[in-house]
């Protein structure tokens, strides 16, 4: 399978999702596909009822990937996610019952409601792509992608994710309300949860894996763009309002996401716009602001920083 044909499949899939199923969610869908192609995870931060779950379901449906869902609560245990061994009386031994995490796409709903112990177990699985239960290591399926959501307005009974764990999400984005005419259409048509189950898959896990390989190996990242990425992270490290700037992992992730974005644009090289287009989603949740500026909007801050950096054009 050639890179251009995978690219074609993925683009067609994205277009179909945007135009036929999920109106007005183009940016979130794009970012979700980028996370999928870059092999990262996505954290969606927005109010309930804006279609977070629908997006995850639709993505799983159209890519023909298995889907698992965990609704996080404060009494959720790690074994509820990873699975557990149960004594099989017929065979006279313990057999492992895999939890929801053994799916290609797993939706962790309201992740900030889970207690830190569970959060860290999940996030470890995200990073390692395997879980160890009772001494046995189980590999997670490939591709594997976490679709976490959290409600930023909920404060009571939540355990905000620590910075080190936020850093594991490749992207973090909101959804936002759809434009007026789209929202009216949605109201008219009613929910689409039922329709989603009937989405015809357009790609397979093999296609996704081929696309991932193409993104990692075939997209050229020029020195100019690397310099641009470096200037960007250096700017966040020297910024007055920011206490801790972007880490090297952030820069690596930015490059990965930019490659995936370039792939979606049909280029085999990264343009500075690709970096610009994913920078806010990749970077804003990793910034730690100074206490006196904590209320500032990180996305806006990052946008002003980016606006000040000249693009490499020649």
């Amino acid at each position: 399978m050639t890179a251009s044909s995978t690219k074609y499949i993925i683009s067609a899939m994205l277009d179909k999702l945007c135009n036929s199923h999920l109106h007005g969610k183009k940016e979130v869908l794009r970012l979700s596909v980028i996370a999928l192609l870059a092999g990262g995870h996505i954290l969606i931060e927005d109010l309930p009822g804006l279609g977070k779950t629908t997006i995850a379901l639709a993505l799983a449906g159209i890519t023909n990937l298995t889907f698992g869902r965990v609704q996080c609560t404060s009494d959720l245990l790690p074994s509820d996610i990873t699975g557990l061994s149960i004594f099989n009386r017929d065979e006279g031994r313990f057999t492992f019952l895999s939890g929801p995490i053994f799916n290609n796409i797993i939706l962790l709903d309201e992740i900030n409601r889970a207690m830190p112990r569970t959060q860290s177990a999940m996030l470890e699985a995200m990073e390692e792509r395997r879980v160890t239960v009772e001494g046995t290591t189980h590999l997670l399926p490939d591709p594997f992608m976490v679709f976490a959501t959290q409600n930023p307005s909920d404060q009571s009974g939540t355990f905000p994710l620590p910075e080190s764990q936020l850093d594991r999400f490749l992207l973090c984005t909101g959804i936002g309300y759809p434009p007026e005419h789209l929202e009216k259409e949605i109201i008219m048509g009613g929910g689409i949860r039922e329709k989603i189950s009937s989405i015809k898959p357009m790609a397979t896990a093999t296609d996704i894996l081929a696309a991932r390989r193409a993104v990692a190996e075939e997209i050229y990242l020029s020195e100019k763009v690397v310099a641009y990425i470096y200037t960007l992270i250096a700017a966040t490290r020297n910024h007055l309002q920011i206490q801790t700037g972007l880490s090297t992992r952030a820069a690596i992730n930015l490059a990965q996401a930019a490659k995936a974005a370039a792939f979606l644009e049909g280029r085999d090289f990264v343009a500075p716009e690709d970096v610009k287009g994913v920078a806010v989603a990749v970077c804003s949740h990793r910034l730690i602001l100074r206490p006196e500026y904590e209320t500032a909007h990180r996305g806006e801050l990052l946008r002003t920083i980016i606006a000040d950096i000249p693009l490499p054009l020649a």
Binding site: Y220, S222, E223, K224, V225, R267, F269, V270, A271, P272, P312, L313, A314
Partner: peptide, 8 residues
């Protein structure tokens, strides 16, 4: 143009 410039 970009194909040249951003391929170094």
């Amino acid at each position: 143009y970009g194909g040249v410039v951003y391929r170094d």
